[in-house]
């Protein structure tokens, strides 16, 4: 048996609908016989009548409705058709869901799935990675699963959490990643994972860039360098302890992320390490992000816009020479 990252997301939702009557799925085209733009909810509307609901093209109202339902005890899962469109719902996510517990002492257990990141030919409005924006605001948990197993267990965990969870699923991984079987249980939320052990430098990453980082580490291994790859799994909370422990072993830090370069998750990792573990560093920490332009359409431009195994490896080599 082989299961993809996308199938894992569908299976997690099927399980949630099966075991928890508070769960419903709300989003554009998720219901009917269609099952979502990427088929992440395929067949679920038929299996769970009345609980997988198509919505108008109204991201603000979709999230607002989910917030209201969550306040009244439901566990809605919102599918944004593309992460990019969640910008329309920023107000509801940041100002309503993100402030609600702090203001009223009543948590808002919503899960918002964001099909994130670039694929060839998707262009400026169907390729964005929004994790850094959501992580910046208080009151939200931001998950960025990089493996099939995490895609499954973290989505189940997201719905169990009483607070709003932004679940960033990477579209590039939907079909590329496969696993033999789905686990019953994953690492606790908020815990990073050592995806590959190494002694020469630490590459911290998440989501699709974690897979690129693993490939870069293989390339470096052929040259005799052993990179340790840390998969953050959640960018918020950020498991600085695991990162610092890795940097303590290697003395060198490179962070790779697909979001835009100003601020963001990679900058946060470097800020934590330099402020809490400056003495652990043998060289100035480095980072790689997408370029500071909108995301291009043409495959030649797109592949040069985001980090990849080759330029992660190149940046690592330069850092190793420091």
């Amino acid at each position: 048996m082989s299961i993809t990252y996308l199938e894992a997301i569908r299976e997690a939702q099927a399980k949630l609908l099966r075991v928890d009557e508070r769960v419903f799925i709300y989003g554009q085209d998720v219901g009917g016989t269609f099952g979502g733009a990427f088929k992440a909810t395929k067949g679920l509307a038929k299996e769970f009548p009345g609980r997988v609901l198509n919505t108008p093209i109204s991201e603000d109202a979709i999230v607002g409705t989910a917030i209201g339902a969550a306040i009244q005890g439901m566990r809605p899962i919102v599918e944004m058709q593309f992460a990019d469109f969640s910008s329309i719902a920023l107000n509801q996510i940041l100002n309503n869901a993100g402030t609600h517990y702090w203001r009223t002492n009543v948590p808002v257990p919503i899960t918002i799935r964001l099909p994130s990141g670039g694929t060839k030919g998707s262009g400026p409005f169907h390729s964005q990675s929004m994790e850094s924006i959501y992580a910046h605001y208080p009151g939200l948990i931001v998950m960025t699963p990089a493996t099939v197993e995490d895609a499954y267990t973290m989505l189940i965990e997201a719905v169990a959490i009483d607070d709003p969870v932004i679940y960033c699923e990477h579209k590039y991984l939907y079909y590329h990643l496969k696993a033999d079987k789905l686990p019953e249980k994953g690492l606790p939320t908020g815990r990073a994972r050592i995806a590959r052990e190494g002694r020469d430098l630490t590459i911290v990453s998440y989501s699709a860039m974690m897979q690129e980082s693993l490939a870069a580490a293989e390339e470096l291994a052929r040259e005799g360098f052993e990179a340790e790859v840390v998969d953050l799994r959640t960018v918020k909370p950020l498991d600085a302890d695991t990162v610092l422990a890795s940097v303590a072993r290697t003395g060198r830090l490179l962070c790779a992320g697909e979001s835009f370069p100003w601020g963001g998750a990679t900058a946060e990792v470097i800020a934590r390490v330099t402020s809490q573990g400056f003495h652990l560093l043998d060289a100035a920490p480095q980072r790689l992000n997408a370029k500071d332009t909108p995301i291009p359409y043409h495959p030649n431009l797109w592949s040069a816009h985001r980090p990849n195994a080759q330029n992660i490896a190149a940046k690592a080599r330069a850092l190793l020479r420091e």
């Binding site: 508070r22 419903f24 109204s58 603000d60 109202a61 979709i62 999230v63 607002g64 409705t65 989910a66 917030i67 209201g68 339902a69 969550a70 306040i71 009244q72 005890g73 439901m74 809605p76 107000n91 509801q92 100002n95 309503n96 402030t99």
Partner: peptide, 21 residues
């Protein structure tokens, strides 16, 4: 919240929850 109009859909959601329940 101060952002006007936002509470309409939130109210809709509370009513949907009641219907679900």
């Amino acid at each position: 919240i101060s952002h006007l109009g936002a509470m309409i859909s939130v109210t809709v959601g509370t009513l949907m929850a009641k219907r679900f329940k």
